[in-house]
């Protein structure tokens, strides 16, 4: 069963065609990597799939909902209820503790549950650091808080934008390990990255060039070619 379907999706900014006639289907529980050089349309696709922007043309269906018909309010609701976002820059609120940062996502989604948030932090190995402010955490720890926050509302789709872009090798491995665990437990993951080391962990990899899908491969093949 497909959780996400893009049919003939295009996006133009003035004269610039950021995406051109994209067709893509992502199965429930699949791990997909979107790769490509800068300006290839990765972020545009991330924005459209993540309900942060609307395609100029075509249809985007997420978990049975046609996104192009939704108002900004409707898109906010879908994003809040169905998508867990992981950012390259972590984007934690500096004056809230790790625990509060996770609870924040619950607060804007439904009902805050401290025990659940603590468990989420425990799952990413940060149970002991729950009361620390972001400034008291390392980059890797901040990214793990960001992951815990993305997972707290049990999203249908985990959308990670360069999740290891700001991490050292050890922390990159740790984050990828968490993503593997999530994948094994049945989560659907879309990772936007330009790093082959990250892309090779995915089941399927699409490579964008000039707003088009230039080729599709698998993580394993990507690993071999590297």
């Amino acid at each position: 069963m497909n959780i996400l379907e893009l049919r003939g999706v295009s996006m133009t900014y003035g004269a610039v065609k950021a995406l051109q006639n994209i067709d893509l289907a992502v199965k429930q529980g699949e791990w997909l990597a979107i790769m490509g050089p800068s300006g290839s349309g990765k972020t545009t696709m991330m924005n459209i799939v993540g309900c942060m922007d609307k395609a100029s043309d075509g249809s985007v269906v997420l978990d049975g909902e046609e996104l192009s018909r939704l108002s900004p309010k409707g898109l906010t609701a879908i994003r809040r209820d169905k998508i867990g976002l992981i950012f390259q820059q972590f984007h934690l609120v500096p004056y809230l503790t790790a625990l509060e940062n996770v609870v924040l996502a619950q607060y804007y989604h439904s009902m805050p549950d401290e025990a659940e948030a603590l468990a989420a932090l425990g799952n990413v190995g940060l149970g002991e650091r729950a009361r620390h402010l972001p400034s008291q955490l390392s980059g890797g720890e901040q990214q793990r808080v960001c992951i815990a926050r993305a997972l707290i509302n049990c999203p249908q789709l985990i959308l990670a934008d360069e999740p290891t872009g700001n991490l050292d090798e050890a922390n990159e491995k740790l984050v990828l390990k968490i993503l593997h665990r999530l994948h094994e437990s049945g989560s659907t993951i879309i990772v936007v990255t330009h790093s082959p080391e990250v892309g090779e962990h995915a089941e399927r990899v699409i490579i964008l060039e000039h707003g088009k899908i230039a080729r599709t491969t698998t993580g394993a093949k990507l690993h071999k070619s590297a």
Binding site: P94, Y95, L96, T97, E100, Q106, Y107, P112, E114, L133
Partner: peptide, 18 residues
């Protein structure tokens, strides 16, 4: 931890930027 509310978020911001 005090329950997170809009008020609590505002209070935390002020408290942690003395």
């Amino acid at each position: 931890m005090k329950p997170l509310t809009t008020f609590q978020i505002a209070k935390n911001n002020l408290r942690r930027r003395p």
